[in-house]
Structures are given as structure tokens and as C-alpha cells.
Design a protein around this nucleic acid. Structure first.
Lengths: 342, 342
DNA sequence: CAATGTCGTGGTAGCGCTACCATCTATCTC
DNA sequence: GAGATAGATGGTAGCGCTACCACGACATTG
């Protein structure tokens, strides 16, 4: 007789212990825990008592192996410090905190290759769902998502060709709306200032360009961008560059609110009147834009809601209830404020 | 003969497939992958060839079950949107991106109960290490951490009684240094403005109080706090409250930089001269404080470094190399800027 | 040169759970 | 009242991997 491996697990009670104590089969315990409706009231109570007494907690790793499905949501974002994604995450977390799903978070650093690597790590784990930011996956990433065998939600943007589901809004339209607003307010030499210039920023730029061209105001020199990661500091630098480059600049549409804030501070420092001499519009509408002096016009994006809805859609898909429309556009809202109130 | 469950895993190659193809035992494949040094050069090459050809990827769930250890770092932070924790996370991620560890992130919402719940979820998974923010765990949480059977690193603060290891700095000293600086710069009626008032904020307040009392300047009416979550907007509100309450207020030490920014904007709006009429000091030294106009004095905290070091310590502990000194104080730095340059 | 150690390799037996199928009882149908 | 159906329960056999132990080959020691 070989002695068993003496609980290398560390002595925690197993489902067999509960089954023995409750006088039922192990499988009935399993069912009582996962599908209480399929076990009689009587046994359920007995089992619950045994569970409580032993302090039994199912082993998630054993579960995952046996059922070929881990109770994990894989989430991939391009940045942890960009507060836009932080709010998407907050939405995801808030929607998942009542469930038993754990969240595995990956940081792609805006890199397609890193995204591939992370999907390669996440996939074999058989997550319950995957939520990824953006719609510009590499072909390899796309294939990995398609073969993941779980619901996939692409967030932050919308597009014509979802891997599975999508929740977001149109960055092109956002950029266009912001620019049109500035034109409407009487600005003419409106610069575009952008950092990082990831695909979403590119689309905002395209929206800016479309609006400027439609008004006959487009001039390539008005555009100042850099691939460098965005920051308030960088906003100041880029604004200085733009001022040095373009005579008569009378407004700027900023890629995002960090940049806009840098521009605003530089205007203060250089005693440039906002909105009189220079108008400023940001993107995302962070909390502080409303408080800034002068308050800054921005495009309010539904970041938190995107997080919430992405989880709701994934959960529905897991439950077998796929939505009619796999692509949801949550839109955006132009917040008119002092910085463009000429 | 019963037919096997026909690869309910989904047809992915298993270690047995690799072993067969390479003409070795399964265990040798396992070793070649985990401890290459213990397998001969020859077999290692053969096995690698088989792995490549089949596209074999080990099943992390099976691994976790068999070895009673998941390649997962559990990380618990109180907030996702507070950029302070975002930077700690960035440090953690950057230090872990070369390894095969996955990261499971929990959001405690500054709640001890939620922390307990998350530890109860993380524990049974047998993570490779746990990193938790703060040192004020509930007794239950503390017990869960102690019995987790893996390295534990408490981050953001230091204290006398680590569960296992600690990386952080003294918030009391930070608050004291900031206040002393303002006193030194000639401010006398220095208010304390704080939101959220989590344990770390409380300690900053205690530091403020110690400095004020030492200088004979303390007055309880100078303190304006709220349990409401911190934001730039709230900074403005609290500052207004403080102004209404305290005659002759000539400076404010803010709980954090969001609050400080709200104060700064309100000063602009109300045409209060900074630093002449009111001096402002923040806490954390976010990127934007240097760019703000006027630039804002703040306490620079080593957030990113805390993330990096916490992982390094955990990794070392996993490898059996526990540090001599389990508690590491990374300090902070007072950044003197225009907002207090009277 | 026997005794001892070390290294490389493999077989076996689980890890703790759930899928699958079988069984049994109670209820329903005509 | 025989047969069919549905619901509750259990046994068995894995899921894919690694811990443990065994074993043979070779080197080391006095």
C-alpha cells in the first residue's frame, strides 16, 4: 500500500472531505456549489453545513483543469498610467466585483508585439472572457483572439469588423466635433497638438483634418505631433513648438487633456490670454478640465461606461445570450467651456 | 475499453505528445522546460524541436494543480484611478514583464472588508507572491496573508511589524517635511486640506500637526478634511471651505497633488496671488506639478521604484534568497517650487 | 576494486475537481 | 398498470501536469 502524497496541497479540505461529512457523493457537492437548483433542498442544506464547518473553498486550479475553463477575465490595456484606461478598468472591476471572476490584467505598452505575447500567455489559461483595448490588433493577435474559445470584447473604439463584440465610440467623429466647435467659435488658425499618436490619436487627427478641410482652413503646418508618450510637460513643449512654427495661431485642439493642460499652463506662464488670444480644446474630459481656470472645453468620453458594458456583454455571452448587435457605439459629448468661449 | 474523453481540452498538444515525439519520458520534457540544466544537451535539443514542431504550450492550470503553485502575482491596490497606484503598478508590471508570471489585480476601494474578500479569492489559487498596498490590514486579512504560503510585500508605507516584507516610505515624515518647509518659507497660518483620509493621509496629517505644534503654530481650525474620494474638484471646494473658515490663511499643505491643483485653480479664479498671498504644497509630485503655473512645491514619492523593488524582493524570496532587512524605506524628496517661493 | 556518490532519466501515482454516463425513484401518460 | 419521462444522485475516469521514488550508468574515494 502506497501512502498518499500526504496532502501536498497543504491540508486544506477537499470536496471529498465535504462529501464524506455530508454523506453524499463528491459530484453532488460540486453541483450544490455550482448549480444549487439541481440539488434537493435537503442535501443542499447538509452540504452547506459541511462546507461551513470544514471551511471548504473549492480549488480554482483544479476547477480550471477539470472544466477546461478558468474563472478569469483577461484584460489588455495599452497603459496603466493613462487615466482614461484607469477608468475603463474601474468600470470593469465594478461590474465584476460581485462575481467570482478574477481579473488578470496585461499592459501592452501600446505595442502590438507585446499584445501578442500577452495573448499567448493568457490563451492557454482558457479565460472566461477577454477584453482588449483597441481594434488594431496584429493578424497574429487577431487569430489568437478568434481561437481563444471565449467571448472577446474590443473596447474604446468601434469599427466594422469585430473579432466578436465591441464597445466604444468614434475617435474620428470626436476629433471632428471638437474642431468644428472651434471653427464655429471663430477660431481659424487652429493647431493640432498630439503626443503618442497611437491609432486612436491618429483617428482624432483625421477628424480634425476633415473638419479643417471642409472649412477651407487646413494647413499641414498647423499639425504638431510626436510619438513620445503623452504628458502635461510634453503639452507645454509641443505648444511652444507650435507657436514658434505657426504665425497667428489662434487655437489648439489637443490630442488629450494632459496636453491641453500643458498648453493652458504655458499660456498662463507666457501671459497668453485664453480664450481670447488662443482657444483650447482637449479630449476625454478628465475631471480637472471643468475646474481648471479657465475651464477647458473637451470631448467627454464614456470610459467608465465602456468598462461596465464590456463586462455586461461578456457575461451575457458566457451565459449564452449574445447581443443582437455586437458593436455598441456609446458616443461622446462636447463640453463647451471657457477656454473656447470667445 | 472506454474511449478517452476525446481531448476535451480542445485538441491542443500535451506534454505526452511532446514526449512521444521526442522519444523521452513526459517527466523529462517537464524538466527540460522548467530546469533545463538538469537535462542533457542532447535531449534538450530533441525536446525543443518537438515542442516547436507541435507548438506545445504547457497548460498553466494543470501546472498549478500538480505543483500546488500558480505562476501568478496577486496585487491589491485601493484604487485604480489614483495615479499614485497606477505608477506602483507600472513598476510592478515592468519588473515582471520578462518573467512568465501573470498578474491578478484586485481593487479594494480603500475597504478592509473588500481586501479580506479579495484575499479569500486570491489565496486558494496559491499565488507565487502577494503585493498589497498599505500596512493597516484587518486581523483577518493579516492572518490570510500570513497563511498564504508565499512571499508577501506590503507597499507604500513602512512600519515596525511587516507580515513578511515591506517597501515604502514614511508618510508622517513626508507631511512633516512639507510643513516644515512652509514654515521655513515664512508661512504661519498654514492649513491642511485633505480628502479620502485613508491611513496614509492620516499619517501625513499627523506629520503636519507635529511640525505645526513644534513651531507653536498649531490650530485645529486650520484642518479641513473629508472622507470623500479625492479629486481636483474637491480640492477647490475644500479650499473654499478653508478660506471661509480661517481668517488670514496664508498657506495650505494638501493631502495630495489633485487637491493642490484644485487649490491652485481656485486661486487663479479668485485672483489670489500664489505664492505671495497663499503658499501651496502638494504631495506625491505628479508630473504636472512642475509644469503648473506657478509650479507647485510637492513631496516626490518613489512610486515606480516601490513597484519595482517590491517585485524584486518577492522574486528573490521565491528563489529562496530572503533579504537581510525585510523593511525597505525608499524615502521621499521635497521639491521646492514657485508655489512656496515667497 | 568494492563502496559510495552523483547525474540523468523514467514510471507511477496522484493534485482536486468535473464531464459523462448509469442508476434509481417519483411522476406522468394513455 | 405498463411504459415513458423527468429529476436527483452517484461512480468512474479522466483533465495535463509534477512530486516522489527508483534505477542504471558513470565517476570518485580510500
Amino acid at each position: 500500500m502506497t501512502k498518499p502524497r500526504s496532502r501536498r496541497g497543504g491540508g486544506r479540505p477537499t470536496i471529498a472531505d465535504v462529501a464524506r461529512k455530508a454523506g453524499v457523493g463528491a459530484i453532488t457537492v460540486s453541483r450544490a456549489l455550482r448549480e444549487p437548483g439541481r440539488v434537493s433542498e435537503d442535501l443542499r442544506r447538509q452540504i452547506q453545513a459541511a462546507v461551513d464547518e470544514l471551511g471548504y473553498v473549492p480549488d480554482p486550479n483544479a476547477r480550471a483543469l477539470a472544466s477546461a475553463r478558468a474563472e478569469v477575465f483577461g484584460v489588455l490595456v495599452p497603459s496603466l498610467t493613462n487615466s482614461v484606461f484607469a477608468e475603463v478598468l474601474r468600470g470593469i472591476y465594478d461590474s465584476l466585483s460581485d462575481s467570482s471572476y478574477r481579473i488578470q490584467l496585461g499592459n501592452t505598452h501600446y505595442s502590438g508585439l507585446e499584445e501578442e505575447r500577452l495573448l499567448q500567455v493568457f490563451g492557454p489559461q482558457r479565460p472566461a472572457a477577454l477584453i482588449v483595448a483597441g481594434i488594431d490588433q496584429t493578424p497574429t493577435s487577431r487569430r489568437l483572439l478568434e481561437t481563444a474559445g471565449c467571448p472577446v470584447v474590443q473596447v474604446m473604439e468601434t469599427g466594422p469588423d469585430p473579432v466578436d463584440m465591441m464597445v466604444g465610440f468614434s475617435h474620428f467623429d470626436g476629433g471632428k466635433a471638437a474642431t468644428e466647435h472651434m471653427i464655429e467659435m471663430g477660431y481659424r488658425r487652429i493647431g493640432f497638438i498630439g503626443a503618442r499618436m497611437d491609432p486612436r490619436s491618429q483617428r482624432r487627427l483625421a477628424g480634425y483634418r476633415a473638419a479643417m478641410e471642409a472649412a477651407g482652413l487646413f494647413d499641414a503646418r498647423l499639425i504638431t505631433t510626436t510619438p513620445v508618450p503623452s504628458s502635461v510637460t510634453l503639452g507645454r513643449e509641443l505648444f511652444r513648438d507650435a507657436l514658434a512654427k505657426v504665425a497667428m495661431l489662434d487655437g489648439v485642439f489637443c490630442n488629450n487633456d494632459d496636453i491641453a493642460l500643458g498648453v493652458l499652463f504655458e499660456c498662463h506662464r507666457a501671459s497668453i490670454a485664453v480664450p481670447k488670444t488662443i482657444g483650447i480644446t482637449g479630449f476625454n474630459d478628465l475631471d480637472m478640465m471643468e475646474v481648471a481656470f479657465p475651464s477647458v472645453t473637451s470631448i467627454r468620453t464614456p470610459r467608465y461606461e465602456i468598462g461596465r458594458l464590456s463586462v455586461a456583454m461578456a457575461l451575457a455571452a458566457i451565459a449564452g445570450k449574445r447581443p443582437q448587435e455586437p458593436v455598441v457605439d456609446l458616443g461622446f459629448e462636447l463640453k463647451r467651456r471657457e477656454s473656447t468661449a470667445r
